[in-house]
Amino acid sequence: MQDLGIRVLFEGKNLIRLLGGLWVTLRISLLSAAISIVLGILLGMVMNRKNPITRAITRVYLEFIRIMPQLVLLFLVYFGLTKAFGINLTGETAAVIVFSIWGTAEMGDLVRGALQSIPKHQYESGKAIGLTQLQIYCYIIIPQTIRRLLPLAINLITRMIKTTSLIVLIGVVEMVKVGQQIIEANRLTVPSASLWVYAFIFFLYFIVCYPISRLSACLEKRWKN
């Protein structure tokens, strides 16, 4: 009779450790997402300005971040900064920095798109009923922008949660790494552990990301017009 690998999950502190790993994953991704959203909104507004200099700078920033694989960015910040300038960052800090830089670029582009998708007539109709510039933004432009933006921003959060699995490679012990440790520790006694552990990790990612992605789909449907 073969040993059931699922047993591994409940042995010792394994379950708690996996959940602890999940917490590290969430902490890093949600913190980065929060920073990205705030900075991204500002970036998007800057990108919408007609000034050619700010346009060029933000364009280069966006393209650069988009083209670079996130893993390279992680190595660059974590190892590169230490080697070149002797700045010693913890893996978590490096991860938050990289994901914020990446998220800000993505979010900035989303904000720019959302702002541009508001037709010029909306501004003019607002003017025509005697609203001031500030009132036009508060009552007409921003509410419409948020509706277009929120589903996309929420999507960005799920993408961020998934991409944080890369930070194993700069030595942060998050969920996937904890899983690997458990598998390693049980390699000889329970060979089928890897299947169960990875399945459980999948399940944890799923229960975190699925509600978020549902929320985004719901909002999109409700605000469609």
Binding site: H121, Q122, S125, Q144, W223
Partner: peptide, 9 residues
Amino acid sequence: FQSYDLFPH
């Protein structure tokens, strides 16, 4: 206006 721009939200 021609394009009857009501505020959609």
